[in-house]
């Protein structure tokens, strides 16, 4: 019986290193901030791309996220990890962008399956054109199913299943009680399964 597995890059960064990085960023060290961006940009971009379904928008929102991180870093109190705090900003930015779309009715025009994975094939894995097409098609179907979910369900599902956060960390990142996260997660998992079955 399978269980959710946390990704290695989803594990919390060493506390001491993170603290040092934050202090250097607060002192206005551009190299420290560049390092902070480099460490977290994949997480933020990946989440934004799946939440918004558009790579260009995801890149734009990711930049906004890091700008907000820089502007509000003094307000970070360290109650949660830096990564969870950045996730929270990212989800809020994506939510704002999505509302901006809805006001301009762009959400009906932008396809939700334009993002494609950029991961290199694992060692030993098949990498022929058929396999590549299959992987690309799977990603497209998955993204379309994700796009059919309400934004809130998509956010909780991605943080828990893809980013590998615990329910408690997901609750911190979304600013919700843990119970709410669990019930929302349950509905989101079921909805995803049903959307994938529709596609099949």
């Amino acid at each position: 019986m399978s269980m959710a597995v946390a990704r290695p890059d989803a594990l919390a960064a060493p506390v001491g290193l993170e603290h040092t990085l934050i202090q250097e960023c607060r002192r206005g060290d551009p190299r420290a901030f560049a390092r902070l961006v480099e460490v977290h940009e994949r997480l933020v971009y990946g989440l934004a791309a799946r939440l918004l379904g558009d790579s260009e928008e995801a890149r734009d929102v990711s930049q906004e996220v890091f700008l907000q991180v820089f502007r509000t870093l003094d307000q970070f109190e360290g109650r949660s990890s830096l990564k969870t705090w950045i996730y929270r900003i990212a989800v809020n930015q994506c939510h704002n962008r999505r509302r901006w779309w809805q006001r301009r009715r762009r959400d009906r025009m932008v396809p939700l399956d334009v993002v494609t994975p950029a991961e290199e094939p694992r060692e030993g894995a098949e990498c022929g054109p058929e396999r590549q097409f299959q992987r690309s098609e799977q990603a497209r179907v998955l993204q379309r199913a994700l796009g059919a979910l309400p934004f809130r369900q998509r956010a909780v599902l991605l943080l828990r299943e893809v980013e590998g956060l615990s329910c408690e960390q997901t609750a911190e990142a979304l600013g919700l009680p843990v119970g709410t996260v669990k019930s929302r997660l349950s509905r989101a998992r079921l909805a995803l399964k049903q959307e994938l079955e529709k596609s099949a």
């Binding site: 399978s2 959710a4 597995v5 990704r7 890059d9 901030f33 560049a34 961006v37 480099e38 940009e41 994949r42 971009y45 990946g46 791309a49 799946r50 790579s55 995801a58 890149r59 990711s62 930049q63 890091f66 993002v115 494609t116 994975p117 950029a118 991961e119 992987r135 799977q138 990603a139 998955l142 994700l146 599902l157 299943e161 893809v162 590998g164 998992r189 995803l192 399964k193 994938l196």
Partner: peptide
């Protein structure tokens, strides 16, 4: 379905945004 989502390749930016 959920394992497929969890194992889906990570989406990465084409270039560093730092």
């Amino acid at each position: 379905a959920l394992d497929g989502l969890a194992r889906s390749p990570r989406l990465e930016p084409s270039e560093s945004m730092a």
